[in-house]
Amino acid sequence: MTFEPQELGQSKADLAETLKTLRKRAGRTQVWLAKRTNMSQTKISNIEGGKLTPSLVDVELVLRALDAPADMVAQVSALARTANTEWQDVWSQRRTGLEKKQNELAGFEQSSTEFRYFLLSMVTGLLATPEYVRASLAAVPGDHSKAIGKKLERQAVLHDTSKRFTFILTEQAVRWPYLPSSAMAMQVDRLVSVSRLPNVRLGVIPLGGHMPNAPLNTFTVYDSRIATVETSTGAMVFRDHRDVSAYLNEFSVYEGYAVFGDEARERLSEWASGFRS
């Protein structure tokens, strides 16, 4: 499916209006539909009012209850998938303030319990030293002290033992010389330190051997409900279960290539020594 950026915002309103129109054409009330779909009347009202974006499962339940024709089912299902996808471009983020993005990520972290991070080319903020965080924003014009502070503040979530984290970093992500050598050595040391937290699994994928699957993007999966995929000009946020499942499956593949525990720490220590030498 092709997503046009302007459609991703409009599709939510279109989906709400379409579902409302279908219900009215069928001569049914929100109360009737709520009973048939095992949802609350408030939820139906919020969906039709555009206050709540329904999942594909919700949409399928509504369409089945209203006995929608097959062509309409396909059309509305496609609309629902678009409505569950969000494009966040970097220029909009800069206009609204990068700390707003940090607040959004903190919200994801607060509402989730299991996190999977695949890091293709850089270290993510939760694992970064202050120097690395500052360097990651250095090319963006303006004062980003609040965003930097929020990034570092978010790292406290790693010590919440009710949450579980799995980080997979490629060798490139670890060793890319983003900072001077001494600072890079400290960054790699931090990865070793974080890997010892009881609720963190940190793995690295060394470049060697045969790996027939090639990653294209850095991505994060929150529980089994949201996947965020980073590009050079922004990020896609997926909530459709098929998209999220696809990234969970991809993560499992790279998990099979990674080394964890003492073996990962041995590799990291070697790379840190390389920076120091």
Rank of each mutant, 00 (worst) to 15 (best):
Q6H: 03
K12T: 10
K12D: 03
T18Q: 15
L19H: 07
K20V: 11
A26K: 15
Q30V: 08
K35P: 00
N38W: 04
I44C: 00
I47G: 06
E48W: 12
G49Y: 05
K51F: 06
K51G: 09
D58C: 01
L66Y: 08
P69W: 12
M72K: 10
A78N: 15
A78G: 14
T85D: 05
E86P: 01
Q93K: 05
G107F: 10
G107M: 09
Q110W: 05
T113Q: 06
F115P: 01
Y117T: 01
L119I: 00
M122Q: 12
T124A: 02
L126E: 05
L127Y: 07
A128D: 04
E131R: 07
K151L: 10
K151C: 11
L152M: 14
E153M: 11
R164H: 15
T166I: 05
M184I: 11
M186K: 11
V192R: 05
S193G: 06
G203A: 06
L207M: 09
G208E: 08
P212N: 12
N213S: 13
T220Q: 03
V221P: 00
Y222L: 10
I226M: 00
I226H: 00
A227K: 00
T228G: 02
S232N: 13
D240Y: 01
Y254V: 08
Y254P: 04
E255G: 03
E263S: 10
R265W: 06
R267Q: 14
L268M: 15
S269M: 03
S273K: 12
